[in-house]
């Protein structure tokens, strides 16, 4: 099938780009990227994605709030949902169980010490730099046995529960597409972008 396609490409490239005919051997050695330059800009493959089709899988939310759906929730609304859908793995208070991670650590840590001590659990409260990530991840992956099954309201309520238990927002805070992107996470200022490009010294 590849050979056939290569032949088609050869003929097409001659016809379209008017380039000289090359031996098959030469042609076979040309990288795909170079071959592509002899083709039209578009091969007109693929079919148009429909708005409904895109919406069915376009589940991400970003720090600016893009992608956050309508709906809202509070810590109080999150309590029964957490108890029913989260506590069996993460513990009644978000303390973590067995291999499932701890979610709540309201105490302030001096100096972001994670690089010195691997035993400190990284949680939403002490390590996650963006609040919108909590919505994105909970909605995307939880509960573990039924990912994607939480409604927007349930997700906002769980986000409010997590942020309030970590003492990042008040217990009464309402989380929605407008309020969540404004939440400042304490860990954010500790993150730096990798600027290494190889060479020396080791960093």
């Amino acid at each position: 099938m590849r050979t056939t396609w290569a032949g088609v490409v050869l003929v097409a490239s001659v016809a379209i780009a008017g380039c000289r005919i090359e031996s098959k051997e030469e042609f076979a050695g040309v990288p795909a990227a170079a071959r592509a330059t002899r083709l039209p800009d578009r091969l007109e493959l693929g079919v148009a994605a429909t708005p409904v089709g895109i919406a069915s899988i376009d589940i991400d939310a970003n720090p600016a709030g893009a992608g956050l759906p309508a709906g809202e929730g509070t810590h109080a609304q999150g309590i029964p949902i957490y108890a029913q859908k989260c506590a069996s793995c993460h513990g009644a208070k978000g303390e973590g169980l067995a291999t499932y991670p701890k979610l709540v650590s309201p105490d302030t840590l001096a100096g972001f010490p994670f690089g010195k001590d691997a035993s400190i659990p990284k949680t939403v409260g002490n390590y996650w730099p963006y609040a919108t990530t909590v919505y994105d991840y909970v909605h995307r992956t939880m509960p573990f046995t039924a990912p994607g099954s939480l409604t927007p309201n349930e997700t906002y309520a769980l986000v409010a529960w997590l942020l309030a238990e970590n003492r990042i927002v008040p217990m009464t805070a309402v989380m929605n597409a407008s309020t969540l992107p404004k939440v400042q996470m304490p860990a954010r200022r500790h993150f730096v972008i990798d600027d290494r490009t190889g060479g020396q010294p080791f960093r």
């Binding site: 720090p63 972001f112 690089g115 390590y127 500790h190 993150f191 990798d194």
Partner: peptide, 22 residues
Amino acid sequence: NMSRDETAKYTDPLANGTARQF
């Protein structure tokens, strides 16, 4: 997007009290 796997995970906490991202 700042997904979990590029923030809470797959970032490198360093001895100097920062975490290297990306």
